[in-house]
């Protein structure tokens, strides 16, 4: 097994996911399976090749930095799980 229990719990924490005790083995197995499959890229003739980050030719796309007002606050806020006076509400962060 490549991936340890500590490692999977660490990764889950980074991803802000909780893995229950009885799910750990399954996550490890699934991750091991796919990582073993991905090993095939070590055989790919990629030495000295540049990386490609997107399917387009890499370039910067510029536009004028102009304010565009999104009028429909109501439509945005209707998706808030909690709100107060036109704002998204979250629990206290600083104590």
């Amino acid at each position: 097994m490549q991936v340890s229990k500590e490692e999977i719990l660490h990764i889950a924490n980074l991803a802000r996911l909780e893995i229950k005790e009885d799910e750990v083995d399954n996550y490890i197995k699934n991750l091991d399976d796919i990582l073993n499959f991905v090993e095939v890229i070590n055989n790919a003739p990629i030495e000295n090749l540049d990386i490609t980050i997107g399917a387009n030719e890499a370039k910067n796309v510029f536009r004028k930095d102009e304010v565009k007002v999104f009028e429909d606050n109501e439509a945005l806020l209707q998706n808030a799980p909690a709100k107060e006076s036109n704002m998204f509400k979250i629990p206290k962060v600083l104590t």
Binding site: I41, I46, L49, I51
Partner: peptide, 9 residues
């Protein structure tokens, strides 16, 4: 990084 090189390949 390797996956991105494969993309070039």
């Amino acid at each position: 990084k390797k996956a991105q090189q494969v993309r070039t390949l």
